[in-house]
Simulated assay, not measured.
Amino acid sequence: MDTRQDELRRDLDATLQARKELGKEYEEELVDSFMKRLDARLDARVERSVASRLDDYEPDHRDRDRRRSHRPWAPGRAGNRLAVISLALGIPLTAIASSPESGGFVGLLACWAGIIGVNFAAALGNRRDREERRPRGDWD
């Protein structure tokens, strides 16, 4: 039998012997005391188990990035929202900018150059943020 099991059995035997000596008046206190010791042992055992599993677990940031890259549009990502909004706003802006009063073809080019510029700047900013959050290795 395991030494922890032996200790637990000795504690239980001691509790039962104390109940015999002290009588039924102290039964509740003795059971509570034994249960507290048992809970403490279980808590320690769970903490050791969790700690050993956490030591074995080290997430790889490349795996996380690969999982994210398979989703073409994630509602929580700001870059995707900006792209969708700029495309939605691009339709009326194209109509306005391409009208003869607003410059025609030159207005159209200026409008889409601005939309592309905003999206490009946002993409560069997101890339820079990801690189700053990435853990550095010994060779970086």
Results as ranks from 00 to 15, higher is better:
Trp139Asn: 14
Phe34Asp: 01
Ser52Ala: 08
Gly107Ile: 00
Arg37Leu: 10
Pro72Thr: 08
Tyr57Gly: 02
Arg9Phe: 12
Ala74Asn: 15
Asp2Trp: 06
Ser52Trp: 07
Glu47Ser: 03
Arg64Phe: 05
Val46Gly: 00
Asp55Gln: 13
Lys20Pro: 02
Gln5Thr: 09
Leu16Ser: 11
Arg134Val: 02
Leu54Val: 03
Val31Thr: 08
Asp6Pro: 07
Glu58Gly: 08
Gly117Val: 05
Tyr57Cys: 05
Ala97Gly: 04
Glu7Trp: 11
Gly117His: 04
Arg67Gly: 04
Pro75Ile: 06
Arg62Tyr: 10
Val118Gly: 03
Arg134Leu: 01
Lys24Ile: 15
Arg19Leu: 15
Asp13Thr: 12
Tyr57Phe: 06
Lys24Arg: 15
Ala95Asn: 11
Pro135Cys: 02
Asn80Tyr: 14
Ser33Val: 09
Leu82Gly: 00
Leu93Cys: 12
Asn80Cys: 15
Val106Asn: 13
Arg41Pro: 02
Arg64Cys: 01
Gly76Ala: 04
Glu27Ala: 11
Asp2Cys: 05
Arg19Thr: 13
Thr3Phe: 14
Glu47Lys: 05
Val118His: 01
Glu101Ser: 14
Arg71Ile: 09
Pro59Gln: 01
Asp56Gln: 13
Leu42Ser: 10
Ile115Pro: 02
Leu89Glu: 01
Ala97Met: 04
Ala88Arg: 03
Asp60Cys: 06
Glu27Pro: 03
Glu27Cys: 10
Leu124Met: 14
Trp73Ile: 11
Arg134Ser: 00
Asp6His: 14
Gly117Trp: 03
Ala83Gln: 06
Glu101Asp: 14
Asp65Trp: 12
Pro75Gln: 06
Pro100Tyr: 11
Gly23Ser: 02
Arg19Asp: 10
Val31Asn: 07
Asn119Cys: 08
Val84Ser: 14
Asp60Met: 06
Asp55Gly: 08
Glu7Lys: 14
Asn119Leu: 04
Cys111Met: 11
Glu25Ala: 14
Val106His: 12
Leu42Asn: 10
Asp39Pro: 03
Arg134Met: 01
Arg64Asn: 03
Pro92Gly: 03
Trp73Ser: 10
Pro72Asp: 10
Asp55Leu: 11
Arg4Trp: 04
Pro72Leu: 14
Ala113Met: 04
His70Arg: 15
Ser52Cys: 10
Leu87Asn: 13
Arg68Trp: 06
Gly114Tyr: 00
Met1Glu: 04
Asp6Arg: 15
Phe105Trp: 12
